[in-house]
Each structure stands twice: as structure tokens, then as C-alpha cells.
Design a protein around this nucleic acid. Structure first.
Lengths: 125, 125
DNA sequence: AGCTTGTTTCGATATCTGTTAAGACAGACC
DNA sequence: GGTCTGTCTTAACAGATATCGAAACAAGCT
């Protein structure tokens, strides 16, 4: 078993033990808020957009970098970007002719905090 | 800053640097597969069901434990459980009169693996 | 003005959420 | 065996929401 595999197993065990999602039932309010994030990521095009933006040089990508990747029209890409934006996962900024999108770090942090155990169980020493 | 907060920040920084989602663009196939998981979790009722099952004593809960929590009819709960089941997030088993559901650990592992950096970046020494 | 980039609006189609009604399954009771 | 009762799922359906494209609009160059 590689180091990476071992780490993932340890991580999963800890998740199964102590992550917020597993430790106690989510409140209705928490669930509504969190489900908005998951729902936005619940579409393959949006997941790829998110990944394309996040992995792009400089941590940002303009729409022109994204449109060509899919066999979808401009308005459709724009629609998906809007969903991601309204979920708080990305933010967009116009600079001259182009609109640049980048990841909103707080959103990923919140997701991680739900799926991953807290420091008491699996944090660094 | 508490240990837990510090851990979350370190985690997020690492996520922003090296998690699979951020390191390189997801392939279309990866995106389709992953989006199924996120989509299943993209509903507040299903998210709470998942959390209720995971946090229940013994790691499993019968449908009768879940139905009372929501102001929804039985068939609706059954439908949401089916969505979670078909996404591979939970598995159900009938024992006598009752049907018990439990978390499928592999699914949470996959989600963690996407959002959380691998061992090379943040694993244990 | 003309061109490029991106968003918004609107409409068609498809999927999702929830309900009622009916079916499947296990135990209790006669 | 037969028939209740309780638990859960499936089937059929209505209403809401989502996905996508064509057309129209907005914003910034040259």
C-alpha cells in the first residue's frame, strides 16, 4: 500500500469517525446551505468548469478559455458560470474585453470542513 | 487561532494547491462520475438523511428512524433513499420488518480524495 | 460604426420533488 | 391456512425547476 493510499484510508477512517457530517445530524439550515454548494457541483459541466478555472495558470481563467472546451454554446456556459457564481464557488471580474473567473477559496474550505474530520481526530501533530 | 481553525486553514491551502480538482482539469468521464455523487448530495433532505444515517448509533438507521424527522410522506423519503443508494452513497438491507441503511465508505473516500490534497502535499510524515 | 466578448431573455424539452394509490414483504393473531 | 397490521417500495401523476439553444442586448476595444 502506497503512502498516498494509506493516507486516504486513514483519512476515510477519520471521516467515518469524526467529520461533522458523520458526527451528528445536520440541522435543516446547515443542510439547506450546504446542499446549495453540492447542487452547484452536481453537474458534470460545472464540475469541469470549476476544475478548469482552479487549475488554470494564475488561478483564473477567462470565459474564452472555457467555452472552447465544451460542445456547448456561449449562453449555456454563461448560465453554468452564473450558477457557480451564485453558489459562491467562483467570482468573476471584467478586465477590458474579457471576464475572468477565479475560485472562491472559502467555499472549498466549507466543503472540506464537512467531509473531513477536525483536528482533534486527524489534524497534524 | 485554535488548533482546529489552523488545521482547516492548512487544509484549505493544501486543497488550493494540490487537490485533484485544482491540480488539473477533470476529464469528462471523471466529471460525470463525480457529479453523480455531488448531485445526490445536492438536496437538503438527502444531505440530512445521509448525516442522520452516518451519525446514528451502530452506523445504521432504519427508515422508521428517518421518516419522523421530516414533514414528508413515506414514499418521498423512500425516493430520496433510493437516489442516495443508486449514487452509491448508502446501502440498504432488510432485516425482518425493517430496512436498515448504512453509509458506503468508499463514496465518502472518493469525495475526500477529490477535495483534499494527496499525501505528497499534506499527508502524515 | 463595426467587431469581439460575454450576458440576459425567452421558449422548448427534460429532469426533479412531492403526493396519492397500489403493491410487496414480514410478523401477529385467529 | 387466512387475514389482519405495520413497514417500506413502486407506479402514476402534477407542479416546479433545470438544461440548452436562438435571438437580442450590453460593454469594451479599434
Amino acid at each position: 500500500m502506497s503512502n498516498q493510499e494509506r493516507f486516504l484510508v486513514e483519512l476515510t477512517d477519520a471521516v467515518g469517525c469524526c467529520s461533522p457530517l458523520v458526527r451528528e445530524p445536520l440541522s435543516a439550515e446547515q443542510a439547506v446551505e450546504l446542499s446549495r454548494l453540492f447542487k452547484a457541483m452536481g453537474d458534470p459541466v460545472r464540475l469541469r468548469l470549476l476544475s478548469l478555472i482552479a487549475s488554470h495558470d494564475g488561478g483564473e481563467a477567462c470565459v474564452c478559455d472555457l467555452s472552447g472546451v465544451f460542445e456547448l454554446t456561449g449562453p449555456t456556459i454563461s448560465h453554468h458560470l452564473r450558477v457557480l457564481r451564485e453558489a459562491g464557488l467562483i467570482s468573476g471580474e471584467r478586465r477590458g474585453t474579457w471576464v475572468y473567473y477565479r475560485i472562491e477559496p472559502g467555499a472549498l474550505r466549507r466543503l472540506s470542513a464537512v467531509l473531513v474530520p477536525d483536528v482533534a481526530a486527524a489534524g497534524p501533530a
